[in-house]
Design a binder for these strands. Sequence first.
DNA 1: TGCACAAGAATCGTATGCAATCTTTTTTAG
DNA 2: CTAAAAAAGATTGCATACGATTCTTGTGCA
Lengths: 237, 237
Amino acid sequence: MNIADQIYSAADSANQDRAQAIRDNLRDAIVDRRLAPGTKLSEGEVGTLFDVSRTVARAALQMLSFEGLVRTERNRGAFVANPSPEEARQVFASRRLIEPGIAIAACGRVTAADVAAFRAQLDEEGRFIAERGPTARRSEIKASGDFHLLLASVAGNAILQRFMEELVARSSLVIALYGRSGVSACGHSEHTEIVGALERSDSGLASRLMLHHIDHIEADLDLRVRAGPALREALNF
Amino acid sequence: MNIADQIYSAADSANQDRAQAIRDNLRDAIVDRRLAPGTKLSEGEVGTLFDVSRTVARAALQMLSFEGLVRTERNRGAFVANPSPEEARQVFASRRLIEPGIAIAACGRVTAADVAAFRAQLDEEGRFIAERGPTARRSEIKASGDFHLLLASVAGNAILQRFMEELVARSSLVIALYGRSGVSACGHSEHTEIVGALERSDSGLASRLMLHHIDHIEADLDLRVRAGPALREALNF
DNA sequence: TGCACAAGAATCGTATGCAATCTTTTTTAG
DNA sequence: CTAAAAAAGATTGCATACGATTCTTGTGCA
């Protein structure tokens, strides 16, 4: 199911739409924080950058705005989203509601191949944690999100999978914005525990571990409103 | 102030985005089953129908495709979605995961004004149930969905609210396709009970009632694969 | 009659142009 | 010198144009 999924989605993105490819590119850039929140994404600029017309660039930006990664204002353009603390709370409240259920569903469907994929994923996470520097930290956030996406794909519900894609992407943005420290090592060990529960098909444990894991991630955020960002926001920076 | 002015200002107030207005219109039509599943939605036709260019019509169709109400195939066009039984199951699995949590959240935030809104909503549902005929049945399905959307708005999480909008819309489609009978009266009484639980802020009860309610809705569906729809699907009808 | 195939029509994907709106800079009055 | 007004420049919203792809229909051949 994993390999088939990968092939399918690869063929899909190659074949289907250039707008989709651009969206994926931009999404990665936003999630990796190469594009800072608030950055203006002009249609023309995106178009020339990817060598397409404004029409296609616009479609890509529209998709991102649906996912909540980009905020569009009429006659003003598109900007990388700058989630408020309240939005951040809602993102995590949503995850608390959905992900334990996903963990339970995954327990009932996980295969040996899936477990192998999880192990590979965990290894990759570990590598990024061992490294130092901002680039490694970005990759680490991304890898951590990919773990949750992998779990969602194993759960076998396409709708929830799409919801999770959105929530994970927005979480990455929130963590990059409000993250306090590197609780990542802790997150990594929790991921490992969750895989262990999956392997033993202990759905109750997997669900509980997931809930705690999300709590820990959110607890590492500093969601107090700060003067700096608010001022910037007010000045349209 | 003449007629032309009124028309202009009306168009202006609906200004926000013409594509959005068209999307809402089409969504209502799909949810109400005025547009049958599988119906082709050509960009040109939609455009002339709403008196806009293909560009705008295309944007509206893209939005609907994100919501899963429309399926687009490259170089072939957009069609009203024809959810498979498997998709239907996933829709309800998602709702089982999300809506009990929404009911709990709503319990903690419901105001007197909200309760009044719920009562009005229940009254409207009752009216449609009392009536007979296909038009009333459509309105009834829509009103039933609106109850769940109202609950989601009371819960106060914008992200979950959007997820619910999508799930309710897709549910309406599924019910119209696979619905067996009029379990609606039962559904109505269950809605009433849920509002009662809300009023008493009994979150545990509200959550349990919601879960049973979703189970009942799904139990009324006939999700066996039938030759008819499969054939139609194969013939691209 | 039935089937393969090709010309034509319809539709989609994308680029580009123009008007409306927003932003920035320059000008001008106090 | 400051602040408001106006003009210039940039960017978006939308419509339209054109090549590419798919669907339809009619024709020839077995």
